[in-house]
Design a protein around this nucleic acid. Sequence first.
DNA 1: GTGAAAGCGCTAACAG
DNA 2: CTGTTAGCGCTTTCAC
Lengths: 352, 352
Amino acid sequence: VTRRRSPPEPSPGWASSRPTIQDVAALSNVSKTTVSNVIRDSGRVSDATRRRVLDAVETLGFRPSGLARNLVSRHATTIGVVVGDLSNTFYAELVRVIERGASRLGYTTMVCNTDGHPELETARIETLLEQGVSGIAMLQFSGDGALLDELAAVRLPVVVVSCWDDRADCVAVDDVAGMQLAVEHLFELGHERIAYATGPLVEDATHAARFSGYREAMVLHGLQTRLVDAALAPDGVAGAAPLADAVRGEDAVTAIVTANDLMAIGLIAALERSGARVPDDVSIVGFDGISLGAHSRISLTTIAQPSARMAQQGVELLVRRITSPGEPGLQQVRLDPELIRRGSTAPPPGAR
Amino acid sequence: VTRRRSPPEPSPGWASSRPTIQDVAALSNVSKTTVSNVIRDSGRVSDATRRRVLDAVETLGFRPSGLARNLVSRHATTIGVVVGDLSNTFYAELVRVIERGASRLGYTTMVCNTDGHPELETARIETLLEQGVSGIAMLQFSGDGALLDELAAVRLPVVVVSCWDDRADCVAVDDVAGMQLAVEHLFELGHERIAYATGPLVEDATHAARFSGYREAMVLHGLQTRLVDAALAPDGVAGAAPLADAVRGEDAVTAIVTANDLMAIGLIAALERSGARVPDDVSIVGFDGISLGAHSRISLTTIAQPSARMAQQGVELLVRRITSPGEPGLQQVRLDPELIRRGSTAPPPGAR
DNA sequence: GTGAAAGCGCTAACAG
DNA sequence: CTGTTAGCGCTTTCAC
């Protein structure tokens, strides 16, 4: 009944383009199936044939086409990594660790930088979906619920790393606890007029969590909260003027807790540019624990995140979700932050 | 003559998995081809059908499978980015710009970090090849000629960014000129005992080029070259001891030019830790121009690379090579470095 | 153990 | 303008 088509004719031009599994099959006198079995070393192939096939692979310089595999399996062995700001070492470091982990587990990493724009986030994720990624790690998530729903609809595993979201799997530091640590530290030093500073590249969720940690701690001590919005370059160029006011006069703040280290470092530069000394006039606490904060010239007191561990656990969780889908329940890991006391904090001016 | 196969039966289970182009075709009563033509808006489709198809796409929530497209076109619309050290802001920034440019041109970026290991470089590139990337941008290239040959053999466009290699398309800063700028600057300040410092994460080619720029300039002034090998964390923790010797005693160096800013910053910390002051006792010149060097506390004199421009030109060149292959001749762009004078350099101790 | 056949979802000639 | 027919290179039942 089955009519033979025109003979397959293994390799038409031979010598053109990359060798395919068909070419290997032809050269080693076996079927595609067997070659396939050999290269994936899946099961029953006699040692003799295996060797023959392997030889053919070698002499042909055959490299299996991931593209074809992907089509069959209906997803690529890649994971998408969505990051808001790769310029921030903290995230670059996270990406580095994630890439390493993913690679070890057999996945390639597609990185997308959103510059903090939600539209870009949506667009990039759309691209990732078309590319058939098997999962997505979001560092810095805008918090767009619709996005989460869409991803859930296509059953694509997502894990949010370094940023908390109640609706998704995530592994992040305890922002609230971290901020409380920061405020406690300052309070113990004698500070009472403590402000919180955030900036443009801080996602809403993170800002909210950190600010609330700050507020809770402040309220606990009966202190008044103050918010500084600072759009700063790491060298502190922008936003110096509004800051100057905050740290001057009767009611001047004596300490500032910041949403991240990069901002803190920028803040130090901005403050010093405007004549205030750190920590003599004003103390600064960062958040993240980037390695530059340890530099003797910067010496930034900060709330350190266990970033390597976070990233590592993030990929592992993601890959687990990919390989065994359907396991119910949100997986949410909250890691402990740690206060690192360095030279950017000291007792307030009055106290000395 | 043509026997009809068993009827295609557009959507078997319907409701299972993602809709395919076939589903859209069925719903809008046209052929796959027409749907294909609509979604790629390739040419002749009547407005009426187009609308009908688009509606179907909409109601089905159809998203074309990049995987299938890739298989047909035999390459993914992705470019690989191979980077040695994503922890170094300079490279992270480069990756950011490349990703942006690639994305604008329709490519997704696969990032691979090699930690400076040539074996990892080879392995990652192998993966990229299997994934069918359309091109590769190498930031920090080990200089492995065999690798280049292999890539040439499969006709895969490669451009080396921020690192010079005579055998490949590349866009990089003029390392030699940069180092000469650095030495000239120090010489004008009165320094004569100037050392060159490099470290583990600096690729051979770059080290060679920068060192030779340094040497040429030194020789030009009849000065003796000195090499310091410093494996430093950004906070200057490691390698402090060997350094201490170099800057002490009769023949102590009064200035050090470094292979990159991160090392320079680490060097400053290490030196200060060992009791030497920068720039009073020893001047430091960096290379790269990372934004943190502008921080008032660091104030690093450095040779800045036009990194954004470099990255941008890099992707553009790469994409040009991808879209119009076969254009002969190496494309090599050499950009001018720029000396940025800041506070880490001053006249040598004796001269004051 | 090995092979034949049937697709994965799409694009690409050609016909009409 | 639209449809038909072949694949892209691999994995996968299911026979042998």
